[in-house]
């Protein structure tokens, strides 16, 4: 896989991969897609809305796009870095 032309977005992609997201290159009008590690759509995770996130080749503001990608990874209830102490069994799933 070749690197994303923008350093910040490439860094966000690497962050996503480090959190068990799968990143695939290619697709129409995008650089690629990032796939959440969960096996199916989970409505209680971000409304089931970011199972697949499009990574743009030339977003208007690459820095914002990179931040967004990181935010989506962080919000992921299965492997993301949600800040929580204590009772999480209704949200976290063991792999």
């Amino acid at each position: 896989m070749s690197k994303h032309p923008n350093k910040e977005i490439q860094s966000a992609i690497e962050y996503a991969k480090s959190k068990a997201f799968t990143v695939e290159q290619g697709g129409s009008h995008c650089w690629g897609q990032m796939y959440c590690p969960a096996e199916r759509t989970h409505l209680d995770c971000q409304g089931g809305a970011h199972c697949i996130t499009s990574i743009l080749s030339t977003p208007k503001n690459p820095e914002n796009h990179a931040k967004r990608l990181r935010k989506i990874v962080d919000r992921c209830i299965f492997f993301g870095s949600s800040k929580d102490e204590g009772n999480n069994n209704d949200e976290k799933r063991e792999k």
């Binding site: 697709g27 129409s28 009008h29 995008c30 959440c36 759509t41 409505l43 971000q46 409304g47 089931g48 809305a49 970011h50 199972c51 697949i52 996130t53 499009s54 743009l56 030339t58 977003p59 208007k60 503001n61 914002n64 796009h65 967004r68 990608l69 989506i72």
Partner: peptide, 25 residues
């Protein structure tokens, strides 16, 4: 949903990050 990305970018939505999950949304 991916079929709309081209049109969205052309319409000035290159400041949006598209997300797909739930079917039909």
């Amino acid at each position: 949903p991916a079929t709309h990305i081209g049109a969205l970018l052309a319409a000035g939505c290159d400041d949006a990050t598209p997300g797909i999950g739930r079917k039909g949304y």
